[in-house]
């Protein structure tokens, strides 16, 4: 049961990979990239979980003296915070290219953009 987040994360990564490879619409490919990203974040947070511990925040139930035995690893969570922001930036850039591609050809089907192939 405690590995459910890990399994869900791996499945979301696979779903994103499937969407990136098979979809024909550019927006759906971008959604695939976002799914891949989200799955990676879930996996990273799940890997940092320490059995039967709680969030790394000091309050009434987790005192500073015993924090070392009561909290999960804060470092991967900070990393994921960074990764979410980078993922946002990448998604926004991809959407920008999609807007420009749509303005140039009036279509978002990947098959309509043949001139960039070599």
């Amino acid at each position: 049961m405690e590995y459910i987040a890990l399994v869900v994360g791996f499945l979301i990564i696979l779903a994103g990979l499937w969407a990136i490879m098979t979809r024909k619409n550019i927006l759906k490919i971008i959604i695939g990239f976002s799914l891949f990203d989200t799955g990676l974040h879930i996996v990273m947070v799940a890997l940092a979980y320490v059995n039967e511990r709680t969030a790394p925040i000091i309050d009434g139930t987790v005192l500073a003296e015993e924090a070392i035995n009561k909290v999960v690893d804060p470092v991967p969570q900070a990393l994921v915070l960074t990764a979410i922001v980078i993922g946002f930036g990448v998604t926004a850039l991809m959407l920008t290219y999609a807007v420009r591609l749509f303005k140039s050809k009036g279509s978002l089907e990947i098959a309509d953009f043949k001139d960039a192939k070599w």
């Binding site: 924090a67 070392i68 690893d73």
Partner: peptide
């Protein structure tokens, strides 16, 4: 699964470093 914090996280979660 992990049963203990990594060394780096133990440094961050020490009482003197929190204070």
């Amino acid at each position: 699964g992990n049963d203990e914090l990594s060394d780096l996280a133990q440094f961050y979660a020490q009482k003197e470093n929190i204070d």
